[in-house]
Design a protein around this nucleic acid. Structure first.
Lengths: 163, 163
DNA sequence: TATTGTTATACTCTATAACTATA
DNA sequence: TATAGTTATAGAGTATAACAATA
């Protein structure tokens, strides 16, 4: 193998990553013991990675409007999975976070999913596992950043004529 | 790097794959020119990979009930993105497929997402890209199969007490 | 009788618009 | 006046239950 273009690498990601995600998603669906919707689950996971974040920031990342996310958070606060506190410096903002129960919920979910993934990659050789880990570590920084500063939403109805 | 366990490899996947998926998902959200919901988009992509499949099979994969998927397909058929034909051999079943317009829609979406991913992996060296492609090819067969033959749904309320 | 899919109905989720509170 | 969130209302999406058609 030689001369791999960025486009070819992208094609591989596009074909394989969603398949891995299917397995993760199926696991999440199967064991949502707290009866969480997918959006609620994604929100918990996001709060796990981003403590003390604002409502707007969560809404933008998850892809919901502010009112929708406000209501979704309502439900998580009621179930004592999420904390919602007024920001001391700017009393308009709120700081969101996980309660111990919320943290336990997400930890438990991750543990289960990790086991499912481990079973999937079990057939790999030692060499292949090392390869896998190296690749993930190389990809990690490239997909953590937000390169597109809130790109404008397509005006819904005006489809772009693209390649 | 040596002595990588399946659990460690799984941990890497669990941390990085959802981040890549965030980028893919954000792109899908941003340019759903046909005004497709996420479920509708996933359905089109699934039909692209699995021609002439039944309604039940699609519903199970996407994670919707049969009535919900029936209605979702209604919408896609109305917009002339999906074909729905009675199966000749067994007239209870239906065969689903993409219309040329549906195929064009999914192709266009993939092209855009591929470009976004290519931009992300552009910083990788030639060596790293080769690594990436090799890893994806090794993972592909492991995540294509369905090892869990429709595992029973947790009875909703009885959360498992796990690690 | 069992299987595949659809129709009927109700509920949940999400969005748009209007509003409150703080800056 | 601008910004961060919430409340009010309406529309879309989804589920459960009942039904129709084929095997």
């Amino acid at each position: 193998m030689h001369g791999v273009s960025a486009e070819q690498a992208a094609e591989e990601l596009l074909q394989v990553v969603p398949r891995i995600m299917d397995v993760i998603r199926a696991d999440v669906r199967r064991r949502r013991g707290e009866d969480l919707s997918v959006a609620q689950f994604r929100t918990l996971a996001f709060l796990d990675r981003n403590p003390d974040i604002s409502l707007s920031a969560v809404a933008e990342h998850i892809g919901l409007t502010l009112p929708s996310m406000s209501k979704l958070i309502d439900g998580l606060v009621e179930r004592e999975l999420v904390t919602r506190e007024t920001c001391p410096g700017d009393r308009r903002r709120i700081n969101l976070g996980l309660t111990p129960r919320g943290q336990a919920t997400i930890n438990s979910a991750f543990a289960t999913t990790r086991a499912v993934l481990a079973a999937r990659v079990a057939p790999l050789s030692e060499q292949e596992r090392e390869n896998l880990v190296r690749t993930m570590q190389e990809l990690r920084p490239l997909f953590m950043m937000d390169p597109e500063p809130e790109a404008e939403r397509v005006p819904a109805g005006e489809t772009n004529g693209n390649p």
